[in-house]
Lab assay of single mutants.
Amino acid sequence: VRLVQFQKNTDEPMGITLKMNELNHCIVARIMHGGMIHRQGTLHVGDEIREINGISVANQTVEQLQKMLREMRGSITFKIVP
């Protein structure tokens, strides 16, 4: 398990697509080339996201998580399992 932190201070999309796997874990499905996450190089396709800013992603839908990420500003921390 590791923590990945980055800054999001604009309306620029993060450039990641999330999916739920068969165990209902949140997985990074795709990283858009040239997007914020791609430029930082901190997340990778297949990484499992456990928490966003200390909030568990368990029992949340992809749509709920994407909305939460769109609305966040400032420092964002993901707890991930590579």
Rank of each mutant, 00 (worst) to 15 (best):
R2P: 01
R2A: 05
V4N: 02
V4S: 03
Q5T: 15
F6G: 03
Q7H: 14
Q7W: 10
K8N: 07
K8Y: 07
K8F: 04
K8E: 02
K8I: 13
N9F: 11
T10Y: 07
D11C: 06
E12I: 07
E12C: 07
P13M: 07
P13T: 10
P13A: 09
M14G: 03
M14K: 01
G15I: 01
G15Q: 03
G15L: 02
I16A: 06
I16C: 06
T17R: 11
L18I: 09
K19A: 14
N21H: 04
N21V: 06
L23E: 15
L23M: 14
H25F: 05
C26I: 15
V28G: 00
A29I: 06
R30L: 04
I31G: 00
I31N: 01
I31M: 05
M32E: 15
H33E: 15
G34F: 03
G34H: 09
G35D: 04
M36H: 15
M36W: 15
M36G: 09
I37M: 12
H38Q: 14
H38N: 06
H38E: 15
R39D: 07
R39G: 06
G41M: 04
G41R: 06
G41F: 02
L43M: 12
H44V: 11
V45F: 02
G46P: 00
G46Q: 02
D47V: 01
E48A: 07
E48V: 09
E48Q: 08
E48M: 05
E48F: 03
I49Y: 00
R50D: 03
E51L: 03
I52A: 03
N53C: 04
N53T: 02
N53F: 05
I55D: 10
I55T: 13
S56M: 07
V57P: 10
V57G: 01
V57N: 01
A58G: 12
A58T: 12
N59A: 10
N59S: 10
N59P: 05
Q60M: 10
T61M: 04
T61W: 01
V62A: 13
V62G: 08
E63S: 11
E63L: 07
E63G: 11
Q64K: 12
Q64Y: 13
Q64R: 09
L65R: 02
L65V: 14
Q66M: 12
Q66E: 14
Q66C: 09
K67Q: 09
K67F: 11
K67M: 11
M68V: 11
M68D: 15
L69R: 00
L69M: 11
R70Y: 10
E71K: 13
M72H: 12
R73T: 13
R73A: 08
G74A: 02
S75R: 12
I76E: 00
T77F: 12
T77E: 11
T77I: 11
I80N: 01
I80D: 00
V81F: 12
V81K: 10
P82K: 06
